Simulated scan of single mutants.
Amino acid sequence: MAVWGARMPAVQQAAHLSTGSLSLVLLAAALGMVAGLWAGGRFARPERLPALLICGAVALAASLALLGQCRTLASLLAAALAFGAAHGVLDVAANTGAVRCQNAYGKPIMSSLHAAYSIGALGGAALAAATAGLAHGALFLGTALVLALAVLAAEPRTVTLSGTDPKTPGPHEAGLVRAPGRVWLLGALAAASLLGEGAAADWAAVHVHALDAGAALAAGAFALYSSGMAIGRLTGDRLTTHFGAPAVVRTGAVLAAAGLATGILANHVPTALVGWAAFGLGLSSTVPSLITAAGNHGPRSVATVSVTGYVGLLAGPALIGALASATTLTMALLLPALLAAAVAVLAPRALENTTP
């Protein structure tokens, strides 16, 4: 995902895409992810998790290689659809396994598990920056081959926790359900936070590149964002234990809003890079804390918050592209900053009395 996002300017240039056309490609990936989430939700039973993890990861690698060979809008739309579907299946499998692991450990580890995703994102972004002189098609193909081989090598060690887990949504519960107002608030906050994560993945490099930064420096924007996210998530469980989820999420959201807004409005490459790093650090603990809070209301509430949150992740990048086409990219990227400010105001109420 990081290699794809960091080299987005090269994808756009190779296919001669306008900002509007690029937003259509991102929308196709979002629609594919919706399909993948639906399919993964239907099949994510404990005994099937290893197969979903392996198949989803291999399919994601294969579709990344395909994306690197596309030079037309039509081919990119088809490949992005497949890429999103594979991502959705893998996401369901990984998060279902994460919930089961946390329940088995009996203590907060969700933030640390989410840090693994951020560390992978950091590695991918760093790879993209280090290979800025290499054609993106070759980079995508090489990355896909290495990842596919690594996944297949890990297959014998891929196991699952069997048995009944009362906190894990079953296949019949993996959709929107009736929920109290507090749960819908948690879902709205998840959507706001994940919109910011999607914006960083797909638009951070484009934003810095638009400030006349080179390809390597532009790719570094997402690397810095991912670094902030990884550091925050690696320390998030410990901070939550000491200060409580409301305080950690509120403080982080203020940092995210102020950092990104400053980086966007300064119109200066170094400030923009610092802004994206602060944005990642500030948002790092939000989603793990929201998912934990939803667990207090039962498995159906966890499913509701997860699905609602993905609305922001899937629709956000395309929405920012549409706003950028109507106004400017600078104005469009203020949306995630404003939503982070809203999270800072509303999160303490949503997370009060939250237990790890």
Rank of each mutant, 00 (worst) to 15 (best):
L149C: 10
V151S: 07
A153E: 09
A154Y: 15
E155C: 12
T158W: 13
L161D: 06
S162D: 15
D165Q: 15
P169T: 10
P169N: 09
G170R: 10
H172Y: 10
E173Y: 05
A174T: 14
L176M: 08
L176I: 15
A179P: 06
P180Y: 06
G181D: 07
R182T: 09
V183M: 01
W184M: 05
L186D: 02
G187S: 08
G187Y: 10
A192D: 03
S193W: 04
L195Q: 03
E197V: 10
G198C: 07
A199H: 05
A200E: 04
A200G: 03
A201G: 13
D202S: 04
A204D: 00
V206Q: 05
H209A: 08
L211Q: 04
G214A: 06
G214Y: 02
A216G: 01
A216L: 05
L217E: 08
F222Q: 02
L224A: 00
S226M: 02
S227I: 11
S227D: 01
M229N: 00
I231L: 10
G236Y: 03
G236S: 00
D237A: 07
R238K: 05
R238Q: 00
R238T: 07
A247N: 01
A247M: 08
R250A: 12
R250T: 14
T251C: 09
G252C: 06
A253P: 09
A253E: 02
L255V: 09
A258I: 13
L260D: 04
L260Y: 03
T262S: 11
V269S: 13
T271L: 15
A272G: 15
A272K: 14
L273E: 12
G275I: 13
G275Q: 12
